[in-house]
Amino acid sequence: MSHLIEVFIDTYDLFLNGLWITLKLSAASLFIAFFIGLFFAILKISNIKILEWIADAYIWLVRGTPLIVQIFVLYYGLVEIVLIPMFWAGAAGLAFHSGAYIAEIIRGAIQSIDKGQMEAGRSLGMTTGKTMKRIILPQAFRRAVPSLGNQFIIGIKDSSLVSFIGLQEIFGVASSGGSNNFDYLTYYFIAAIYYLVIVLALTLIVNYIENRMAKSD
């Protein structure tokens, strides 16, 4: 135990660097994933067969392959061909992955909104698009907050996999530290603590948002 605390204190600047990269990666990838998800959710409910197929194909691709494979394919694809920085290759891989799950969450939330809402908007002369944007989506997002929060937590933990393309986020820091000092267990244990803290913080934020929304209803 005292050894763990000692290493924790010795390595906190290294891990804080890793933590910072994890947070940036997660924020960037989930931000992009949200819009990817919104886009494919709208394709799925468009009632236009070809667009639905495109969305289905994307979701099938993501669900049907391991995240680590997606990250590597995107990494070698992107970094070699278009020369984007490693960070953004990693963020793109993670966003591509989370986007599919977020698409399903948003689609479900949109479809859970009473059909009468769209009809009411249309009967007032609003276009489908405007009703979607002003009436349906705001309600759908509120309803999706718990599931989105959950998916964001998964996204943060999944970001550890980009260490395999060389990013020194929390897991990457732990891996190098562990192998340099022949002390894997301690370093991975410390990594776990950092993840737990981030996830705890995000959980509290999501709970806070849920409570505030419950009050305004």
Binding site: D114, Q117, A120, I135, D217
Partner: peptide, 20 residues
């Protein structure tokens, strides 16, 4: 048709107010 609907108001059985 959106323009026509502006001139023809509708009231529904289940109100369909915007809850948010």
């Amino acid at each position: 048709l959106n323009k026509i609907r502006e001139r023809v108001g509708m009231v529904f059985q289940h109100f369909n107010l915007f809850p948010h």
